[in-house]
Design a protein around this nucleic acid. Structure first.
Lengths: 167, 167
DNA sequence: GACTTATAAATCGTAGACGATTTAATCGTG
DNA sequence: CACGATTAAATCGTCTACGATTTATAAGTC
């Protein structure tokens, strides 16, 4: 990764050195990585909302339908591994999506513990329309595709370091 | 920003080019920046939780007490500008923190519309104990301080591009 | 000074997220 | 085969987050 111009361009803001705070009492949120992540995730959510609202999708629903569009017929656990969520979050979300007519939830006949998720025609249709959204979002960020991919990979590496993915 | 070794070190993972997907139907979440942000923010939240739980703090409460520790006597709006939250989220959160005895909420006598927030002794004490937490978190990430600061600044810049800060 | 407008918090309803627990089905081992 | 352990979803309670609305105060205007 020696040659990575987009990395340099991403890094427009001069760093405040954390060393400054070695003797400070309490770090203000604006200096914390965790707050930057938290607030940026919310800002991205807010940027997606107006793009998704016309489709009737919430942001987590959009992630779920995208995952199912890429791989249909997953179980709740498999979707959870993909989205890093568990059944306590997914079950109500999936029930709402089922009620909207975008997917079906049915017990696997070979293992009745598992629930398989399949997009309906309406769901596939919606997923296709939603596939336009990332491009519209990318425009809002003003970032190059390469910068977006770089940042995505940095974040995913941090996430997997903190919380290794399930099999 | 020509010389920035930590940037290079951050970027350990080879980028999948988004160009690959120019003709793909739907991007899977794992390839989306928005999902990387979403899931990494949750992973960071989860990494903080065991550090904060012994203190009796939730993650947003920790951000609030840190902000008040850095600048006491803020109004709800001022805290909201700092944390990028509004009264509909903050009021219940602050009431819980008041009930815990960490802060007081009192109407400003010169402008009765505003509510001023002041840490109690218990609140200041807690904030001081909580100030150890970022270092413990930094260890979990395995990142250098300079890398953390770089990533923080990249994210803050993206956030402010999407959602300019209030005055 | 009365009246409109603007602003600050609070309230309400809905959706996520998650710890802890529960229920139901399957697996493993004796 | 039986029975305890494991696994997959679902359920429950609490805390966030936020759009939309409401309430109370202050500011601006005639």
């Amino acid at each position: 990764m020696v040659n990575c111009p987009s990395q340099a361009r991403l890094h427009k803001v001069a760093s405040r050195s954390l060393a400054t705070y070695h003797f400070a009492m309490t770090l203000p949120p604006s200096d914390m990585l965790c707050f930057a992540l938290h607030s940026t995730a919310h800002a991205v959510h807010a940027a997606y909302a107006p793009l998704l609202h016309p489709l009737g999708l919430t942001y987590p629903q959009y992630l779920a339908i995208s995952a199912l569009s890429a791989r249909d017929g997953m179980t709740v656990s498999q979707l959870g591994a993909e989205l890093r969520l568990e059944s306590n979050t997914l079950t109500p979300l999936l029930k709402r999506m089922e009620a909207a007519g975008w997917l079906t939830r049915s017990r696997d006949s070979r293992d009745e513990r598992q629930v398989r998720l399949s997009l309906t025609d309406a769901g596939r249709n919606l997923a296709e329309r939603a596939s336009e959204v990332p491009r519209a979002f990318a425009q809002k960020t003003g970032l190059q595709m390469s910068e977006i991919a770089d940042l995505r990979d940095i974040l995913a590496a941090l996430r997997d370091k903190l919380k290794p993915a399930k099999p």
